[in-house]
């Protein structure tokens, strides 16, 4: 077993992501799906941060080299903000879903079926 390196982070992210995917596909509860999405977003965040830490090449020219290593974290924060917004919208949808169908089981809401 060597020191913890980039690939460990990536494997963790992949596991998390796969778990999220499995959750999305298998969960019927809208909230569950939302949680699974969060899981996937966070898997992405882990990857972003891991790549940010292990990449030694600034991605844009700057006078502040340390700052140049920060961009991964910045993206991760964006993702978290997006996730928050998404959660807000998703919860609103779920509320409406519940209002209209009396349930938040997504399989019951199949009016879009062609």
């Amino acid at each position: 077993m060597g020191p913890i390196g980039l690939q460990h982070y990536l494997v963790l992210g992949a596991i998390l992501f796969v778990l999220g995917v499995i959750g999305i596909v298998s969960r019927k509860n809208a909230v569950g799906i939302l949680i699974s999405i969060e899981l996937m977003l966070n898997a992405a965040n882990i990857n972003l941060i891991a790549f940010s830490r292990y990449s030694n090449k600034p991605i844009f020219p700057t006078t502040m080299p340390e700052a140049a290593y920060m961009d991964g974290q910045v993206f991760a924060i964006f993702v978290i903000i997006l996730a928050a917004c998404e959660a807000a919208v998703a919860l609103a949808i779920i509320l409406n879903l519940f209002n209209m169908f009396g349930t938040i089981e997504v399989d019951d809401a199949d009016t879009m079926r062609g």
Binding site: I24, V25, I33, V106, R113, G114
Partner: peptide, 18 residues
């Protein structure tokens, strides 16, 4: 025929996306 794919179930869609 294709519209049969459109089940209206989010899960299915997600499977397709996947």
């Amino acid at each position: 025929n294709l519209s049969r794919l459109q089940t209206g179930r989010v899960g299915n869609y997600l499977v397709f996306i996947l």
